[in-house]
Amino acid sequence: QVATSTVRILGMTCQSCVKSIEDRISNLKGIISMKVSLEQGSATVKYVPSVVCLQQVCHQIGDMGFEASIAE
């Protein structure tokens, strides 16, 4: 089973930030795809909930120095 959710990301300033986040999160087990939008300050994450949760994704992004939260 696959889920798609949006994560809000604060602190991104350039495409390099976007690429860094996409590269790191895409390597997590259970992540199918991730598309980060600098303009919208968010990311669309396609993932397998039984393998990885959005809290883990937000935590990983937080470790990179950005502020991440699950969009309502």
Rank of each mutant, 00 (worst) to 15 (best):
L28M: 13
V48T: 08
V52P: 00
L54P: 06
E67S: 11
C17E: 14
Q56W: 14
V2M: 07
T4Y: 09
T6V: 14
E39D: 12
G30W: 06
P49C: 06
A3G: 04
F66P: 01
I32A: 00
T6Q: 09
L10P: 05
A43M: 08
V18G: 06
V57A: 02
Q1G: 08
L38Y: 09
Q55N: 08
S69E: 09
S37C: 09
A43C: 06
Q60Y: 14
G11Y: 05
V45D: 03
V2G: 05
G30H: 04
S26A: 10
E39C: 08
G41K: 12
L28T: 06
S42N: 11
S5R: 12
T13I: 11
M34A: 08
Q15A: 11
M64N: 02
T4E: 14
G62N: 15
V57G: 03
G41E: 15
A68T: 10
A43N: 01
C17D: 15
C53R: 11
N27E: 11
C53H: 13
A71S: 12
N27C: 06
V7K: 01
E22P: 01
G65E: 03
F66T: 02
Y47I: 03
K46F: 14
T13A: 06
S20R: 15
L38N: 00
Q56E: 14
R8Y: 12
E67L: 10
K29C: 09
V57R: 03
T13Q: 07
L54V: 07
T13N: 06
E39A: 10
Y47Q: 01
V45Y: 00
K29P: 13
I61D: 02
C14I: 05
Q1H: 13
G11N: 04
G41V: 04
I70S: 06
G62H: 13
G62E: 14
S16E: 14
M64L: 13
I61Y: 04
A68I: 07
T4A: 05
Y47P: 00
S20C: 07
S37A: 06
K46S: 15
M64I: 08
Y47F: 08
V45S: 01
T44E: 14
G11Q: 03
S37M: 07
K19M: 08
A71D: 14
I25P: 00
K19I: 12
K46N: 11
S37G: 03
Q1Y: 06
V48F: 15
I31V: 13
C58T: 11
V7S: 00
G41H: 13
V57S: 01
Y47K: 00
G11M: 04
V52E: 01
K35S: 09
K35H: 12
V57E: 03
Y47C: 05
E22Q: 07
S42V: 11
H59A: 13
K35V: 12
G11V: 06
E67P: 08
A68R: 04
E72H: 14
A43T: 02
A68G: 04
V51D: 07
L38E: 01
C58G: 08
M64K: 02
T13W: 15
Q1I: 07
F66E: 02
S16L: 10
E67G: 07
C53K: 11
Q1W: 10
T6S: 08
Q56A: 12
I70W: 08
Q56V: 10
Q56G: 04
I21T: 01
G30E: 02
T44H: 08
F66C: 04
V52Q: 02
Q55V: 11
I9V: 05
R24Q: 11
F66D: 02
Q55Y: 13
M64H: 02
T4K: 06
A3F: 15
S37W: 08
I70M: 08
E67Y: 12
M12F: 03
V36Y: 00
P49Y: 06
A71V: 14
A68M: 06
V2L: 06
G30M: 09
I9F: 04
D63K: 14
V52N: 00
L10V: 13
R24W: 07
T6H: 11
I61A: 03
E67W: 09
S26N: 13
L10S: 10
K35G: 04
R8W: 14
S50T: 09
A43G: 14
L54A: 03
E67F: 13
S42L: 14
T44P: 00
I70V: 13
I25V: 09
I25T: 03
K19V: 10
M12N: 02
Q60F: 13
I32F: 04
G62K: 15
Q1F: 05
E72K: 09
L10T: 13
S69W: 13
Q40R: 13
E39V: 09
V51G: 03
I31L: 03
V2P: 06
S69V: 11
L28G: 02
Q15F: 10
D63A: 14
I9D: 04
E72G: 10
N27K: 14
I32Y: 03
S69Y: 14
I21N: 02
I21L: 06
I70R: 04
V45Q: 01
V52D: 02
V18S: 11
I21E: 02
V18H: 02
L54K: 01
L10M: 13
R24C: 07
S50W: 07
V36R: 00
R8Q: 10
V2W: 15
S50V: 05
G30I: 11
L10Y: 13
T44C: 11
V36W: 00
I25M: 07
M34D: 00
S42G: 05
T44Q: 14
H59C: 08
K46C: 15
C58E: 09
L10N: 11
T13V: 12
Q56N: 09
S50F: 07
V18Y: 02
I9G: 02
L10Q: 11
V18A: 15
H59F: 11
S50R: 05
H59M: 14
T6F: 13
K19Q: 11
V48H: 15
I21A: 01
G30Y: 05
S33M: 08
S42D: 09
S20T: 13
V36I: 13
L28S: 03
A71R: 07
K19G: 05
G41C: 10
A43D: 03
K35Q: 10
S33W: 09
K35T: 09
V51Y: 07
E39I: 10
A68L: 06
T13P: 01
C14M: 03
V51C: 05
V52A: 04
E72Y: 12
Q40V: 07
R24D: 03
L28H: 02
K46Y: 10
C17I: 06
S26W: 04
Q15L: 10
L54D: 00
Q40D: 12
V18F: 03
C17M: 06
G62Q: 15
I32P: 00
S42M: 13
K19C: 05
Q55G: 09
Q60C: 05
Q60K: 12
I25Y: 03
S69N: 07
H59P: 02
K35E: 08
I61N: 02
M34F: 15
Y47D: 02
H59G: 12
S42A: 11
P49W: 07
G11F: 05
Q1S: 07
S5P: 00
S37T: 07
N27F: 09
C58M: 13
V36T: 02
G62R: 15
S42E: 12
T44R: 12
V2D: 06
T4P: 02
E22L: 07
S26I: 10
V51S: 04
Q56I: 11
S20I: 10
S33Y: 09
E67A: 10
V51P: 00
E22W: 07
K19Y: 09
E39S: 09
L28N: 02
Y47L: 02
H59E: 14
S26F: 05
D23Y: 08
L38P: 04
Y47M: 02
S26Y: 07
G30L: 08
A71W: 13
K46L: 15
A3K: 09
I9K: 00
Q15W: 08
S20E: 15
G41Y: 06
V7R: 00
